Simulated scan of single mutants.
Amino acid sequence: MKKIPVYGIREFSKGSNEVYFYSNDLPNHLRSHQFINNPHSHSTYITILFTKGKGEHQIDFSSYPVKPGSVFLLNPGQVHCWKLSEQADGFVFFHTREFYDSIFTNRKITDFPFFYLQQNYPVIYLDKTEVVSVMSRFEEINQEFKANNSFKTEKLGSLIDLLYIELSRVYIKDSHDENKETSINYYKVKNLQRLIDEQFRTQKLPQQYADLMNMSTRHLNRLTREVLNKTTGDLIAERIILEAKRLLIHNDIPIANVGDQLGYDDVSYFIRVFKKHTGLSPKEFQKSTIKPFSL
């Protein structure tokens, strides 16, 4: 197994000094960077609009249909690849966390609902009216990126901020979770999930997260059950297993090293944990999983 490649801005902006932002129309992007046809991840945030064509986009072991009006929003580190029709058209842009957070000091990129967590639902399907508005934003972003105007960074930041606000409204509306969006318990659970994202390699017990959030384990479990119908332990295990699957499928390292990277000193215990939550041992999972779109 080859190690999964991780691409930054430089791999897409060769010949320029760009290290924080990249934009292109989709046909040119696909034609110029054939290496993205195989599974890979990025060190940046990615936003892709499809205006034509169809296909399948695989992101972290889940597949999503590609069709006109699809907007995909990926966090850094998510493994993805796709199989697209020749007619695929649209726009794509990448940027680093620093690009956005340095422009807007009163909020962060992770404040947007689709970028809050690694495991957020990664696609929005726009209706015809929404596509017109969103496509104009993408076009303006791409035009500004190609130009060499003064205050270019500031304008790009403002344009993507407006786009993210517009997409957030659709994302929240389509999630059928508008009441949860305004609830205190919802935000507490989202904060828990963010803590798990950051610390799952070293903190694996519900009690540890309850302590970080200054509440009892019992109260924290009540919140997670109310909002997600899952226990705190379920959320911790889901994040660990996702990362384990990434390492097992996309990296050429021994199973013992996978366990070690996830914070397990005892490989036998890691294997038991993995099998408990997937029904397969790590080795069985590797053998049973077909790599996406590989030839």
Rank of each mutant, 00 (worst) to 15 (best):
T47G: 11
K204M: 00
S136G: 06
F200W: 04
L223E: 08
F61C: 06
F114G: 13
F115Y: 13
L192Y: 05
E198Y: 14
L159M: 10
Y187M: 15
Y64Q: 09
N148S: 14
P282Q: 06
T231Q: 10
P206I: 03
N221M: 04
R239M: 12
G90T: 01
Y100S: 10
L212H: 01
P68F: 02
D60K: 07
T182L: 12
E139S: 09
N214D: 15
E181H: 14
G8L: 11
V170E: 04
T51A: 09
H219E: 07
S32E: 13
K283Q: 13
E130C: 13
D211H: 01
P206S: 01
P113Q: 04
Y164H: 15
K245M: 00
E11T: 01
D197V: 00
T153A: 14
H42T: 09
N37P: 00
I290F: 07
L192W: 02
F115N: 09
T202N: 02
G55N: 13
N191R: 12
H33A: 05
G157N: 13
Y269P: 00
I4H: 08
R107K: 15
R246K: 15
E284T: 05
G77K: 11
F112T: 14
Y45L: 08
L195S: 10
I124E: 03
N229Q: 14
S268C: 07
K291L: 14
F112S: 11
F200A: 01
P122F: 11
L49M: 10
S43C: 09
F99G: 08
G77Y: 10
I4R: 13
T47P: 11
P5Y: 01
Q286H: 04
D25M: 05
K190D: 08
I36S: 01
L223T: 01
S288M: 04
T110D: 13
K108G: 09
D265P: 06
K173E: 10
D60W: 07
E56L: 07
I59A: 05
V189A: 03
D252R: 04
I103N: 06
S63T: 11
V71I: 14
K152D: 08
S85Q: 02
F50D: 03
P68T: 06
N185R: 13
F104V: 10
E140W: 04
T278P: 03
I271K: 14
P292Y: 08
N191A: 13
I172V: 14
Q207E: 12
L74R: 05
T232V: 15
N106M: 07
K188D: 06
D197F: 03
D101A: 08
S294N: 08
R246L: 09
G263A: 00
T129N: 15
L228S: 12
N179A: 11
E56P: 00
D260P: 01
F285C: 03
D197N: 07
P27F: 00
L280I: 08
F293Q: 09
N28G: 15
N75R: 15
N17C: 12
G259T: 03
V79R: 10
D252K: 05
P39C: 04
F285A: 00
V6Y: 05
V170G: 06
T110Q: 10
K245E: 02
D111K: 06
S294A: 06
L162T: 13
S63G: 05
L156F: 11
S102Q: 12
T224Y: 08
R218P: 00
S288D: 01
K108D: 11
S288Y: 01
S63K: 11
